[in-house]
Amino acid sequence: MADLGARHAMVACGKSVAGGEMLVKIRAALGERLVGVFADIPAHTPYQCVQKATAQLKSLGADAVISVGGGSAIDCGKGIALLFATGGVFEPYIVDYTNKGMQRAPMPAPGLVHIAVPTTAGSASDVMPTAAIRDPEAGKKMLFWDERMVPDATVLDPEMAVYAGPQLSAATGMTAMARAIECLYSAHRHPISTGLALHSARLLRRALPRSVTAPGDLEARADCQMAAIMSGTASINAMVSVVHAIGHIVGGRYGLQHGISHSILLAPAMRRMLPAIGEDQYYALEAMGGARDAHSADAAGRRAADLLQAMVDMLPLPRRLRELGITEADLPAIAAATMGDYMIVNVPRPMSASDVESLLREAL
């Protein structure tokens, strides 16, 4: 904190962090520099939560926010920094990608130090210039994108991740895996993003199941944290596509954690998207632990999807969209909304609403 010019910090976290050993350790580390805790961040970061947290930070006279948790907590920290800088105004900084491309007002200098402490296996929000904040009344997520949203520092400590339960570890890890795989077949992939995505997928394939079955395995936890950072950096450069686009829609409408929808949709998406990248399908097979042998490129892609699905089947996650309350009658509307999401343009081949609906139906 001192190196960043901050003296007084407020911790922003969810109830699980606030009620456990993680906050005890942070209190001990910060001592008198900790002036308060906002401990009511729910999943998907509703904007009302960000407003309350910002008001509390100002009342405490804090000049730093330390976000502790997964993507929701870190996005809340970003939202606090935004409202602190703008005097409480969200609207000009929301990306309106449906009508204006990626246009938005540039974020002012925050004037607030933001330190992120990730505690899950996959958000990577701590290295990304984006934040997704939910509007519960509209049933959608507001996207913010500005380089000034990247936290000033990140503390990666695998001991802070051991408290995440099996389903949370699995779901957040699958968010990182989905980023890595979608970067491999992105229309904007390049050698640097591919290298980062490949090693991220390798690490997650080995470490994520271990993190679920042996929560105290610090090596596995550290590998998942590093994989998340690599997948996040890859996605900033190459961008992700259809799995994340659908995740934005169902997350906003149904309040679903992204990693759960990602885990269900990723293998079906791979079967559709990987053939578009030709010989590069061998990269995906290698990342999932398969041997090239005599596979054709398309056979390698199909095998990669099968291996990914086999890994998902080991995790304590729902298997089908219908288990999440999504019905066949919902699919056309989800597909239509997905076509308006800013990520859909990054697919390696054109997709129509009927193509998206077909993918959803396979996952239903």
Rank of each mutant, 00 (worst) to 15 (best):
I334Q: 02
M343G: 12
R349A: 15
M339A: 02
R349N: 15
G325P: 04
I326Q: 03
R319I: 11
E328Q: 07
I334N: 09
A336E: 14
R322E: 14
R319K: 10
L315A: 14
R320W: 00
M314S: 13
P332G: 08
P350K: 08
P316M: 04
L321H: 01
P350D: 11
P316N: 11
G340V: 01
V347A: 15
R320V: 03
A333E: 13
I344K: 00
I334T: 07
N346R: 03
A337I: 08
P316G: 03
L315R: 12
R349L: 10
A333T: 15
T327Q: 11
P318C: 05
A337R: 10
L324W: 00
E328S: 05
D313I: 13
E323Y: 02
D330I: 06
G325V: 03
P348I: 07
R349Y: 03
D330K: 09
R322W: 02
A335R: 09
I344G: 00
N346I: 10
M314D: 13
I334G: 00
A337F: 05
N346T: 15
I344S: 01
A336S: 09
N346E: 15
D313A: 15
P318D: 11
P318E: 08
R320C: 05
P350N: 11
Y342E: 14
N346M: 07
M339Q: 01
R322I: 09
D330C: 08
V312F: 04
R349K: 15
M343Q: 15
P348K: 04
E328V: 11
E328Y: 02
D341G: 12
E323L: 05
I326T: 05
P332W: 00
R349C: 12
I344P: 00
A336H: 08
R322D: 15
N346F: 04
P316K: 08
N346A: 14
L317K: 11
T338G: 03
R322K: 10
D313W: 08
D330L: 03
I344R: 00
M314A: 13
P350L: 08
P350T: 12
I326D: 00
L317H: 12
D330R: 05
L331K: 06
N346V: 09
L331F: 03
L321Q: 01
E328P: 05
N346D: 15
A329R: 06
R320Y: 01
T327S: 13
R319V: 12
D330T: 07
L331V: 14
D313E: 15
V345L: 05
L321V: 04
T327P: 09
